[in-house]
């Protein structure tokens, strides 16, 4: 799979506070990555660096061999960054007018796709964006981002602000309309909103990338099971309906479904143990 983003030993700080320290990771095209992390873990900062809005003070970040902060037209035409706060879209234009203004700068923009997605989101394409509710504007922003058909799609908490039915529609739209060649990076702390959509999973902590693995590999190494009592060698357990949801090392090669919340909690509690588990092939 083509390597899209290469990050090496990246560090970033706001003033004196170091938000990212020596982060290294590689991301490939054709995948929908879920970027998980606690609040303040540096998810938004990472997205901004990849998007060219911020510059690291140490280390390297390249996207398709270009340095994002240079903001060359060739780089910009291949990416779309959708921030959490969508003030930029709340203008006096309608969704269609917004696209009319900006689509010429995205060479692969697909108008049919755009209109279809707007329809699936049940959005009034002719209403002034400023007059739409926050959730509606967010949907309009998502519609444009997906229809732009970029090589790199960066979404920061896209499901935040969407009502429950819209979250489902969002997942379906992402699954159906994102190109096979696109690398999508979605940051979230509402893991349930993106369940079944994101794969691989990246777990970010300020000091390190704790995990960057496909669900297939995670389910090879870890076992997620419902037990009536907590076994002694378990990595993480939480009480749930019917017993305890346990995360343990997969010694018996059982194939279980990865529970993202439990995975996250387990990783945050046992950073080194889990890191070592995945380090070995």
């Amino acid at each position: 799979m083509k390597r899209m983003i290469q990050i090496n030993d990246l560090s970033f700080k706001y003033g004196n506070k170091e938000v990212l320290s020596n982060i290294t990771m590689n991301l490939e095209a054709g995948k929908i990555y879920g970027l998980l992390g606690e609040n303040g873990a540096g998810k938004t900062t990472l997205l901004k660096i990849i998007g060219g809005l911020q510059k690291p003070y140490h280390g390297k970040c390249t996207v398709c061999d270009e340095v994002p902060f240079q903001r060359t037209p060739s780089f910009l035409s291949r990416i779309y960054y959708l921030p959490e706060e969508i003030d930029y879209i709340q203008t006096d234009y309608s969704a269609l007018q917004f696209a009319d203004l900006n689509a010429p700068f995205y060479p692969k923009f697909d108008w049919d796709k755009f209109k279809k997605i707007l329809a699936e989101f049940d959005l009034d394409a002719d209403k002034k964006l400023r007059k739409l509710s926050h959730g509606q504007s967010k949907k309009a922003a998502i519609s444009f981002a997906v229809a732009a058909n970029v090589d790199l799609l960066l979404l920061d908490e896209p499901s935040n602000g969407l009502d429950i039915p819209s979250k489902t529609i969002f997942r379906k739209i992402m699954a159906e309309y994102c190109l096979e060649t696109t690398c999508t990076l979605i940051s979230t702390h509402q893991v349930r909103d993106l369940e079944n959509l994101i794969d691989p999973i990246i777990i970010l902590d300020n000091r390190a990338v704790l995990m960057n693995e496909s669900l297939e590999r995670i389910s090879e190494k870890l076992c997620f099971s419902l037990e009536s009592s907590v076994p002694s060698d378990v990595l993480y357990a939480e009480p749930t309906l019917g017993g305890y949801l346990c995360v343990s090392q997969n010694r018996n090669q059982r194939e279980s479904r990865v529970n993202l919340e439990a995975l996250f909690n387990a990783t945050m509690q046992h950073k080194t143990a889990i890191h070592n588990l995945f380090k070995n092939a």
Binding site: G51, G52, L53, R71, T72, P73, S74, L76, S77, I79, Y80, Y81, P83, E85, D87, Y88, I89, N102, F105, Y106
Partner: peptide
């Protein structure tokens, strides 16, 4: 140059010179 309101223009695929 507003970090939120001016984002479209910042990210528009044209050179800074243009």
């Amino acid at each position: 140059n507003h970090p939120k309101k001016g984002l479209t223009e910042v990210m528009l695929a044209a050179s800074v010179l243009e």
